[in-house]
Design a protein around this nucleic acid. Structure first.
Length: 347
DNA sequence: AACGCGGGGCC
DNA sequence: GGCCCAGCGTT
């Protein structure tokens, strides 16, 4: 693509963005002063593989509770994990705490893409996005929206993920020196509202005159994606052990599935195997029902067993948690569903 | 390079 | 029920 056409693309897109930018909580107006790096970083981490609609209430809660990176750095990891509960991909929350500590110790965020890339939880995408959006640097920002828009704009027919180097090169060729942050956000807005996965509203698209796939064929054919493996289905059991208005909660190991999160004890199910059915304390158990839940790489049908008599002290680490405040325990969604099942049966 | 890792929204 | 989403870290 020639420099003239590249310039045309960025100009068309930025003009469109000035008129049609989405109003999102972590954004400043197009062309306005750069937003607070803390808010940019926090939002970008939350937005990793997560929709804007899901992020918005979490972003509000986090910025109200911890208005600065110093405040977040001073928080306990336990509180941050609980506040993150329900948003998913919990390694992000663990890295968020680590990153906040490093940044606070350094007196602020580094301003270059290369330095940002070294921080925990910042990969190629997030380092580029923060450099461009918060610090006005030219960086090549490629997320799933950009992959789709650029695949169509350049008619890249090679399937993802093999096409990534080509997509990156093409994105580089249209990224402007000035307003790279607005350009990146404009590409994402275009991908979210016009050039979407299920639709290509070309009549509304500012880039339609430059779009190769529109000239050559059907935009919805791109990007081609490699087919994914089938998901296994697992079964397991979670155990509701109650004593004097409190329920026994454990803390899951720091790495792996739902790492570091509070949870109900379970019978050892995982993506690799079903649970063995063995409860953590002896006694009479009564089935409360089943909850179904889909993870990224497997589905689970989780039976919920309730200890039918007054429980003794369960074996292992854990804590008694007041049932009245179970919503504050920070249970990930699977276990929140199990708790709701038990408690709803009492109404 | 491939895999593990959440959850909700949409059709 | 399948696909998708402002990806990263590990192996």
């Amino acid at each position: 693509m020639t420099a003239t056409v590249s310039n045309t693309v960025s100009t068309l897109l930025l003009d469109w963005y000035d008129a049609h930018a989405r109003d999102l909580p972590w954004r400043s107006a197009p062309g306005a002063a750069a937003p607070d790096p803390y808010r940019v970083w926090l939002s970008e981490v939350m937005l990793q593989q997560t929709t804007t609609a899901a992020v918005a209430p979490y972003f509000e809660k986090f910025t109200q509770t911890w208005p600065t990176v110093q405040a977040l750095a001073a928080a306990s990891e336990e509180d941050v994990m609980a506040a993150w509960a329900g948003l998913g991909y919990y390694s992000r929350a663990r890295n968020l705490v680590k990153c906040a500590a490093q940044v606070a110790a350094q007196g602020g965020f580094p301003e270059t893409e290369a330095e940002l890339r070294k921080l925990p939880g910042l990969g190629a995408y997030t380092a580029a996005a923060v450099a461009a959006i918060a610090f006005g640097q030219r960086a090549v920002v490629v997320d799933a929206n950009v992959e789709r828009v650029v695949s169509r704009l350049f008619a890249i027919r090679e399937p993802l993920p093999n096409s990534r180097p080509q997509i990156r090169e093409a994105t580089d060729s249209i990224t402007p020196e000035d307003r790279a942050g607005d350009f990146a956000q404009a590409m994402m807005d275009l991908g979210a509202t016009i050039c979407t996965a299920r639709d290509a509203r070309c009549l509304l698209c500012p880039l339609s005159s430059q779009c190769r796939i529109r000239a050559e064929g059907d935009p919805l054919e791109l990007p081609v994606k490699a087919k994914k493996k089938p998901k296994p289905s697992r079964t397991g059991t979670a155990f509701w052990i109650e004593r004097e208005g409190e329920v026994w909660l454990v803390k899951r190991p720091g790495t792996g599935m739902l790492g570091g999160m509070r949870a109900l004890p379970d019978d050892g199910w995982s993506a690799r195997k079903d649970g063995d059915g063995d409860p953590p304390v002896s006694g009479a158990w009564k089935g409360a029902g089943v909850v179904r839940h889909g993870f990224t790489h497997f589905d689970i049908e989780l039976g919920v067993a309730v200890h039918a008599s007054g429980a003794g002290q369960p074996v292992g680490e854990g804590q008694w948690w007041p049932i009245e405040t179970i919503d504050d325990a920070g249970l990930p969604t699977l276990f929140a569903k199990a708790a709701r099942l038990v408690l709803s049966a009492r109404d």
